[in-house]
Amino acid sequence: MSLTAHIPSHRKPRRSAPKSALRAGVAGGVLSTIAVAGAAGPAQAEPVTQTIEMPTLTSGLSTAVAASAEATQQVALDLETQAQEDAAATSAAKAATKAKAEAVRKAEAKAKAEAAAKAKAEAALRASRSEARTTLSTSSTSSTSGSTAVASYSSSATGSAASVVAFVQAQVGDAYVSGGTGPNSWDCSGLVQAAFRTVGVDLPRVSQAQSTAGTQVSLSNLQPGDILYWGGAGSAYHVGVYVGGGQFVGAQNPSTGVVLRPLSYDPPSGAVRVL
């Protein structure tokens, strides 16, 4: 056995063959590529003379954008128009409500005014009648044709005649209106006809016919409820009702209205008795 057999060797270990071959191949490939590139460099370069046109995309896009903008504008216009129509409708509704309220207010005011006027007229009429009755009662008491008051000579009438007398006396103070048949205005024949209608007697409407509607009686033999007439029988121009005590009630004329007067005030031409 050699004495140096156990002495370690100081030689570097050999590289493995595969790794060395790999490194040599890579280096060779790189150098070959450089060499080929250098050889083909400037001599093979040629200027590009062909222009490739890309398809135009902007025309269709512009049309779409324009259409979208137009649609947006139309929508905005439609919204604005709708808003204006809504505002106009709201304004019209408010105006209509206000007008209706004003009309109702005016109607109520008119109704109140008419009611007040009617009440005033009725109060004036009642006062007028009361005054007329007071005056007539006084005049009948002091009259030279008889000192019996209306209340006392009215009581002498009975039955239907008393009803006729009471009716005409109640109208004293009413207005005279040509063609009037009541209830608050009369002409002479309208008053007489209405008085007799209360007891179921239907007299003709005009004074000429009323002057021949019953039995002719003497003015010296009058009874309450007899019809007095002025003018000829059948051609009378005025009528009234005898109420007793030398008094009569008649719708005389527009200036006096319905009055109670003594026979001496305007002596009648004749009389007829219906009841």
Rank of each mutant, 00 (worst) to 15 (best):
M1I: 10
S2D: 13
H10L: 15
H10M: 12
P13F: 07
P13K: 15
R14A: 13
R15Y: 09
P18N: 12
A21P: 03
L22A: 14
R23F: 07
A24H: 13
A24P: 04
L31T: 14
L31Y: 06
T33V: 09
A35Q: 01
G38M: 13
A40S: 09
G41E: 14
P42N: 14
A43I: 08
A43S: 04
E46A: 10
P47R: 01
V48M: 06
T49Y: 04
T51Q: 07
P55M: 05
T56W: 07
S59A: 08
S59Q: 10
T63P: 02
A64R: 08
A64F: 08
V65E: 13
V65K: 07
A69E: 13
E70A: 09
E70P: 02
A71S: 13
Q74F: 03
D78L: 09
D78Q: 14
E80F: 08
A89E: 09
T90F: 03
A92W: 00
A95N: 05
A95S: 14
K98N: 12
K98E: 15
A99T: 12
A99P: 02
A107I: 15
A113R: 12
A115F: 00
K120W: 02
E122H: 00
E122R: 02
E122F: 01
E122N: 10
A124P: 04
L125A: 15
A127C: 05
R129Y: 09
R129M: 12
R133S: 13
T134L: 15
T135F: 11
L136K: 05
S139R: 06
T141I: 15
S142P: 01
S142K: 05
S145K: 04
S147W: 05
S147F: 05
T148D: 14
T148V: 15
V150H: 02
S152T: 15
Y153T: 13
Y153L: 11
Y153Q: 09
S155P: 03
S156G: 08
S156E: 02
T158Y: 06
G159C: 01
G159M: 06
G159N: 06
A162M: 06
A162C: 02
A170D: 02
Q171D: 11
G173T: 11
Y176C: 11
V177Q: 14
V177N: 09
G182N: 01
P183W: 02
S185C: 01
C188L: 00
G190D: 00
V192Y: 00
V192P: 00
Q193R: 11
A195R: 02
R197P: 02
D202F: 01
L203F: 05
A209S: 10
A209P: 03
T212Y: 07
A213W: 08
V217Y: 01
S218V: 15
S218R: 05
N221C: 04
N221G: 10
G225P: 00
L228Y: 09
Y229F: 14
G231E: 08
A233W: 01
G234K: 04
A236Y: 06
Y237Q: 12
V241G: 01
G244M: 09
G246L: 04
G246K: 04
G250P: 02
A251Y: 04
Q252K: 06
P254R: 02
S255W: 03
T256Y: 09
T256V: 07
V258M: 07
L260T: 12
L260E: 15
Y265M: 03
S269W: 04
S269F: 06
V272H: 08
R273M: 01
V274A: 08
L275P: 00
